[in-house]
C-alpha cells in the first residue's frame, strides 16, 4: 500500500495535468503532454538528486478509531534517482519505516548509489552518499514542516500553495511548493505537502522535500557508479529521453477490434464483451486497494 502511496504521491510532484479539450478519438494523455511541455523541469528532476524525507500521516478515524489526531505511521528516507513520466512517478530507492517494520524500496534503479546526499544552495551534491540508516542529518530542521503537517500551523513562510485537485473517490490533493531556508541548511528548493481529504476530514497527509540537480550538467558520471554504457562519460539527453517511456504504451490502437474478454459480474455470472455488440461500452479499469 505504501509503495503505491509513495508513487501516487510522487505523481503530483511533476505532473500538472490540465483539463484539455480532447477529441474523442485521440490517444493523447494530458499528463504525458504536460510532462513533455515541462521537459526542462523534468530533466532536472530526472537527473536529480535528492535527499528526500517523506512522512506519512493518517487519520485514525479513517480506520474506525476515536482518535482524531493525525498519526505518523511511516517515514521514507529516500534517494530519488530518476524520474520517468509514467504519471510523473519517480524512481525511488530508500527505506520505509512503517509502524516499526522496515521496508526497502527500490523502484527502477538506474544505478545511483543508495544513500542520502547533502546538497548545497544550488542543489549540487556536496556530500554523500551516506548510508540511509546512518544518517540523521542535524542540518535538517523539519519542525516547521511537522507542525504544518499536524495542522498546527499554516503553510510555512516561503511556500506557496499551488492548487488543490480533486482526486479519486472524493479525495483531494493540495500541492504546495517553494523554498524554505530553515528546512535544510542552504535551502532546498522544493518541498511539498499532499493532503487527501474525504469531504472535510483529512484522511492522510504526506510531506516530501526534494531538490533538483541537473544531472546532465552538474553531476559527474562517476557519481553513478560507472553504470553508464561503455564509451559514455555522462548521461546524454537521449538517454534521459529513452527512459521516458509513454504512459500510453501497451494500450490498444483506436480502430482495432476489441478482444472478446469475459467478465464476471457481481452475481458470479459470466458476461462476454461480444454479447454487448451493438452498444457503446465504456470500460473503466479500477481498483480500490
Amino acid at each position: 500500500m505504501f509503495l503505491t502511496t509513495a508513487l501516487a504521491f510522487a505523481t503530483v510532484i511533476f505532473q500538472e495535468p490540465q483539463a484539455q479539450d480532447q477529441g474523442p478519438a485521440k490517444l493523447e494523455n494530458p499528463v504525458h503532454a504536460a510532462f513533455k511541455k515541462s521537459l526542462t523541469t523534468y530533466r532536472e528532476a530526472a537527473a536529480l538528486h535528492m535527499v528526500g524525507s517523506l512522512e506519512i500521516h493518517v487519520n485514525p478515524a479513517a480506520f474506525g478509531s476515536e482518535e482524531a489526531e493525525l498519526m505518523k505511521i511511516g517515514t521514507l528516507t529516500s534517494t530519488v534517482k530518476w524520474a520517468k513520466p509514467h504519471y510523473g512517478s519517480l524512481g525511488v530507492k530508500g527505506t520505509i519505516d512503517f509502524m516499526g517494520f522496515e521496508q526497502k524500496i527500490d523502484v527502477e534503479s538506474m544505478g545511483l548509489k543508495d544513500g542520502v546526499y547533502i546538497l548545497d544552495h544550488d542543489a549540487k551534491i556536496i556530500d554523500g552518499p551516506h548510508p540511509v540508516e546512518d544518517v540523521s542529518d542535524p542540518a535538517i530542521d523539519l519542525e516547521p514542516f511537522r507542525s504544518f503537517m499536524m495542522g498546527k500551523t499554516e503553510v510555512p513562510e516561503g511556500l506557496t500553495q499551488l492548487d488543490t485537485k480533486e482526486g479519486m473517490s472524493g479525495w483531494s490533493w493540495t500541492t504546495i511548493e517553494g523554498q524554505v531556508e530553515c528546512w535544510m541548511k542552504g535551502g532546498i528548493p522544493v518541498s511539498m505537502k499532499i493532503e487527501m481529504k474525504d469531504g472535510d476530514t483529512v484522511m492522510q497527509r504526506m510531506q516530501f522535500s526534494f531538490a533538483k540537480v541537473d544531472l546532465l550538467k552538474e553531476v559527474e558520471a562517476e557519481t553513478y557508479l560507472g553504470k553508464l554504457p561503455e564509451g559514455y562519460e555522462s548521461f546524454t539527453e537521449e538517454m534521459v529521453e529513452s527512459e521516458a517511456g509513454d504512459i500510453n504504451d501497451g494500450l490498444l490502437s483506436i480502430g482495432s477490434e476489441a478482444p472478446n474478454v469475459t467478465f464476471t459480474d457481481m452475481n458470479d455470472q459470466e458476461v462476454n464483451l461480444e454479447s454487448l455488440e451493438g452498444k457503446t461500452v465504456l470500460m473503466n479499469f479500477w481498483f480500490y486497494h
Binding site: P24, A25, L27, N29, G255, E257, A258, E277, T280
Partner: peptide, 14 residues
C-alpha cells in the same frame, strides 16, 4: 476505454 457499437476501440485514455 470506449468501445464502439461495432466492437472496435473508439478511444482510450489513462
Amino acid at each position: 476505454y470506449l468501445i464502439g457499437a461495432d466492437g472496435t476501440i473508439a478511444w482510450c485514455s489513462v
